[in-house]
Amino acid sequence: PNVVRVVKNANTLGIAIEGGANTRQPLPRIVTIQKGGSAHNCGQLKVGQIILEVNGISLRGREHKDAAKIIAEAFKTKEKDHIDFLVVD
């Protein structure tokens, strides 16, 4: 796994995720990266990567909605100007 730092330099994060506990995809996977979003601008996140942690918070065992909420709040918070994703291909 490697850590990808996504700087919040756009209005949206710009990723679509699929997966979560009790589904066929047990951990959230990136299925879309939207042009012009912070993730696209970062250039290091790729479609197909699996997100293990967000800012050190593990997504293992979390339902889809819970994982999505953690990522959304990490992007919304003003405490940091970036998000650290621990991802694996």
Binding site: T12, I15, A16, I17, E18, N22, T23, R24, T32
Partner: peptide, 16 residues
Amino acid sequence: VRERRLTLPPSEITML
């Protein structure tokens, strides 16, 4: 393991 995974529901997709 594969059979158990296939019996699980597909996940929803969320745009963030």
